[in-house]
Amino acid sequence: MDKLDKLKNRLLSQIDKTNPIEAEKVDRYVSMVDMFYKLQKEAIKQPIIEIENGSQHFTKSNPALADMNKINASLISLGKDMGLSAPPGIDGKGTGYDPDDLL
């Protein structure tokens, strides 16, 4: 079982599997994680790319890096929607942030 299967199983264990909306969110989340890993693999191979446009020659960061940031933001948003990253105290297990959290 690969890490995406483990992730999907873990997420499915936290939702109502009979709810098609929640199940679709899990599928979307896992799909975005898969795409993030694929982009990361390419960005690691070549973080800076060289562009030639006629007589112009310049370097720039790999566009995969910007796409990774967009996917990461979407993952965070979807994760919050799915209740995956509630701040301390929200789920009734704590009273909020501890002063030591700021150090």
Rank of each mutant, 00 (worst) to 15 (best):
I51Y: 01
G92S: 08
D101V: 12
M35K: 10
F36V: 00
G54Y: 04
V26A: 01
P99F: 03
G54N: 14
S74K: 15
K25W: 02
S13E: 05
S13N: 10
I71A: 00
A86S: 05
P87I: 15
K38Y: 07
L4C: 13
P99L: 03
S13R: 05
T18Q: 11
K38T: 11
K45E: 15
M82E: 03
D27R: 00
A73V: 01
S85K: 00
E42W: 00
A73L: 11
F58D: 04
A66I: 08
T18V: 02
G54C: 09
E24Y: 01
K38S: 14
M68N: 08
L78N: 06
L102G: 10
P99Y: 07
K8G: 10
L102M: 11
H57I: 12
N62A: 12
G94E: 15
L65G: 00
I21H: 13
Q40A: 07
L12P: 02
D34F: 03
D2S: 05
A73I: 00
P47V: 15
L11T: 01
F36W: 11
M35A: 07
Q14K: 13
L4R: 13
G89S: 05
K93M: 07
S31G: 14
I76Q: 07
D98Q: 12
L75W: 05
N69Y: 08
M1A: 07
D27H: 04
S74Q: 15
P63H: 14
M68Q: 06
A23W: 01
E50W: 02
L39C: 11
L11P: 00
M35L: 11
N9K: 02
D2C: 08
L75P: 11
I21T: 10
I15L: 07
R28L: 14
E42Y: 02
Q14G: 05
D16I: 04
V30M: 00
M32H: 05
V30I: 12
M1T: 12
G94A: 15
A86N: 10
P47N: 11
N53D: 12
K38R: 10
I21N: 14
P87E: 15
E24M: 09
A66Y: 14
G83K: 00
S55R: 14
G83A: 04
I48D: 09
K60V: 03
K60M: 07
P87Q: 14
T59D: 05
F58N: 06
K38F: 08
I49V: 15
R10F: 06
K70F: 13
M68V: 05
E52V: 12
M68A: 03
K93E: 10
I76G: 10
R10D: 04
K8H: 12
I48L: 08
Y37M: 11
G96L: 04
K80V: 02
G83V: 00
G92L: 09
